[in-house]
């Protein structure tokens, strides 16, 4: 997996380039060693100095990054670098792991999501999640999509619910394939269809942010292409954070890319910049395939 595991990260690499955004670590009002611009002008979510511990082991070390409106932010890095862990902090899915402990500040439109007053149910309705393995409920296609609106009381009657289901399936690009078999089990669809069903299920509650944890790793290239296409369309209405192992996918779908390494957020930047002109040695080594 990893060929080199530097015990201490190299301090600001000597390499500087005037094409890149201003000096890697600029004067920020928070402590962060990440190279590149972690903040954006109008963020929908901000995270500041996030640490995550599993029992005594620290999995995420001082990560600060913003997520902008209508962007796809991809998070890449070698296996075990903490990108999924960090993603799961954004809708508090880490709460389900008893040993996990999160510190730092994560805000959604200015509200601290780890605040005692924040309701986790509301948060997860606003920050939806699509998982690595397609996990439709063992219920009908219709019930899968209708589940979210139903538990959150988003539809006043059947007509409205039907509408939400249809719109969500349309947006997920699945309507034409399943419109004649809405009552059949969602688990009977193909892998790619199942994953799009999970996306439809997610957007049925109209979230602000969609988190995707390697959504295409279990899919074939054609299904992957469909989902990538879909992400580009969904960006018009939602912010998307995607964890991926495929650098090509990150390059194709995202506007900004964050590189994680052993729990550190090494570098953040415009996707095109990161891939053509990485500032940090680790990022460069990973992107050029020297490890990972």
């Amino acid at each position: 997996m990893l060929n080199q595991k530097p015990a201490v990260r190299l301090e600001n690499p000597a390499k500087t380039n005037d094409v890149s955004p201003p000096s890697p670590v600029q004067n920020r009002e928070f402590d962060s060693k990440t190279v590149g611009c972690v903040t954006v002008d109008k963020p929908i979510m901000t995270t500041r100095n996030v640490d995550v511990y599993y029992g005594g082991k620290q999995a995420i070390i001082n990560v600060s990054i913003d997520i902008a409106y209508n962007e796809v932010l991809s998070m890449i890095g070698p296996s075990g670098c903490g990108k999924s862990t960090f993603l799961r902090c954004l809708n508090r899915m880490n709460d389900t792991i008893e040993s996990a402990h999160v510190t730092g500040k994560i805000e959604l439109e200015g509200h601290d999501i780890y605040d005692k007053k924040t309701d986790v149910v509301t948060l997860r309705a606003r920050v939806g999640m699509v998982f690595q393995k397609p996990n439709p409920f063992p219920k009908s296609v219709y019930e899968n999509v209708a589940y979210g609106p139903r538990i959150h009381g988003l539809a006043r009657n059947h007509t409205e619910l039907d509408e939400i289901v249809q719109t969500s399936l349309l947006r997920a690009g699945l309507w034409d394939e399943v419109k004649d078999r809405l009552s059949q089990p969602g688990t009977g669809l193909s892998g790619g269809q199942q994953q799009r069903l999970c996306i439809a299920r997610c957007i049925a509650v109209n979230p602000d942010v969609i988190l995707m944890d390697e959504p295409c790793s279990a899919l074939d290239p054609i299904a992957t292409a469909r989902i990538e296409e879909l992400m580009d369309e969904l960006r018009q209405n939602y912010s998307i954070v995607i964890v991926t192992h495929s650098m090509q996918q990150a390059a194709r779908v995202s506007q900004r890319t964050a590189y994680f390494h052993l729990g550190d957020l090494i570098e953040v930047g415009e996707t095109s910049n990161i891939f053509t002109n990485p500032q940090d040695k680790l990022t460069e080594d990973y992107l050029t395939g020297r490890f990972g």
Binding site: M93, R124, A125, F131, P136, C202, V205
Partner: peptide, 11 residues
Amino acid sequence: SIREGALGMGA
């Protein structure tokens, strides 16, 4: 995965 799916929906 079923539990995560449900919790991720805000159940």
